[in-house]
């Protein structure tokens, strides 16, 4: 009985303390609206706050990420061990195909170099990059981004494209001193000017916070077929050209979607390209349209 009366007393006390103060409620919502509006109008202010807090949280996040990721990988490794025999069979077949492809590739490389010499084409720009560790996952239905353990101290700049083995992953959206945020190409705000090289057909690829990407073209898409490989076109100077974006697939209702080449959540490290004007081979004196 003493317990029950004690519980009632505690509840009554809590109620008394949480009296519905209208003024505080209104002030709280005003604060929320002000922050929302500030983010919309003066994005620089919220940007610096976000970068600072993210920097401070990075140490805790990175120390938690490693053990949890190891545990998660161990669990997925168990299923790999179970299927090792079947996987081995598939790999042997793929390896034979791969050997043939390597031979073809070396012949094509030689021919390509000869054509380049004949046409007097300059070599492609080779971008420098910084390798960075992923310390969080993209675990939400409404945004697709991860935190990287590289920041201004590693010469990372806002807007730098992020790749993995010649595949586009996204771009840097927020840079702190020791951390940065990578926005994946599957995020709803990302639009990638792309091209299907085999057909010389340009498309705009957009994320929609899902596993797959959408094609935003209003033109006729009859040229695009299932299995077509999509690459970056380099238009708009946001991403370098010829980075692999994904493969065209067909939904059950006939709509065309693109399966990204790599799932960002399966990676531990990424490459951040140095995207300054100098690194891109742009001379500000010759090309006054470009500015920092």
């Amino acid at each position: 009985m003493a317990d029950i009366s004690n519980l009632k007393r505690v509840k009554a006390l809590i109620r008394e303390r949480t009296s519905n103060n209208k003024l505080i409620t209104i002030l709280s919502f005003l604060l929320a609206f002000t922050i929302l509006l500030t983010t919309f109008i003066f994005s620089n202010i919220s940007y610096s706050i976000k970068a600072k807090v993210l920097d401070y949280s990075t140490i805790i996040i990175s120390s938690l990420y490693s053990p949890i990721n190891t545990l998660n990988n161990s669990i997925s490794n168990i299923s790999n061990i179970i299927n090792v025999h079947e996987n081995n069979k598939i790999l042997i077949l793929e390896n034979e195909n791969y050997k043939n492809l390597v031979n073809n590739l070396s012949i094509l490389k030689i021919k390509n170099n000869e054509y380049k010499k004949l046409l007097n084409i300059s070599d492609d720009i080779k971008y420098n990059f910084t390798t960075s560790k992923i310390i969080s996952r993209s675990n939400l239905s409404y945004t697709k981004s991860v935190i990287l353990m590289s920041g201004k101290s590693d010469n990372i700049a806002d807007g730098s494209p992020v790749i993995y083995k010649n595949s586009l992953l996204g771009y840097i959206n927020q840079v702190g001193n020791i951390s940065s945020r990578l926005i994946s190409i599957t995020d709803g705000i990302v639009k990638v000017p792309s091209i299907i090289l085999e057909k010389d057909f340009k498309i705009i690829v957009s994320g929609n916070n899902d596993k797959y990407l959408e094609i935003l073209n209003y033109d006729e898409l009859s040229l695009v077929k299932e299995g077509d490989k999509v690459f970056t076109s380099g238009d708009g100077n946001k991403f370098p050209e010829n980075l692999f974006v994904g493969t065209v697939m067909k939904k059950s209702n006939g709509d065309l979607i693109i399966k990204p080449s790599i799932d960002i959540n399966n990676l531990n490290y990424v490459y951040i390209l140095n995207w300054s004007l100098k690194d891109r081979g742009i001379d500000i004196k010759d090309d006054p349209i470009y500015y920092d």
Partner: peptide, 23 residues
């Protein structure tokens, strides 16, 4: 408010949305 702001920063959502949702 603290949880809302922290969530916004960690998740990378539009700043202020989580704060508004928490309130």
């Amino acid at each position: 408010a603290v949880i809302g702001v922290f969530t916004d920063i960690l998740y990378g959502s539009f700043f202020g949305t989580a704060l508004f949702a928490s309130f």
